[in-house]
Amino acid sequence: MIRIATLAAAALMALTAVPARADDATITLTFETGATTGKVMVALFNSEGSYQSSQPVAAQQIDASGSVVAVFDHLPPGDYAVKAFHDVNGDGQMNTNPFGIPVEPYAFSNNAVGNMGPASWARAHFTVSGDTAQTISIR
């Protein structure tokens, strides 16, 4: 059952930065991590389609040694969702155990949890109409 989660988690590894569209809103994401090594990789999506195909509208890598805050600004109002994983050992990959289950923490916006897979857009998306902040536990 967790194979689905693995596939989705693997998609998180391909985080590529896409230029944000100029606009006014800012999303501030504060991550609560269980470790202070490596980086938290954060991908922002602006539609269900982009979320499912893991084509982020923006992405950031935040050093986990201090406070882990990702700020996405100049965003147009709309619905957004976030996928993140903590590359604890800094090897640039989401490590898995021998049966393919992620061993590094991952999380979604709204602290959403999936149902034998990644959290769905329905669970993870949130509406942005001005400056928006979330605290996401990634342990």
Partner: peptide, 9 residues
Amino acid sequence: GERARIGSP
């Protein structure tokens, strides 16, 4: 059910 929350075993 639908409301299950399973991100890991």
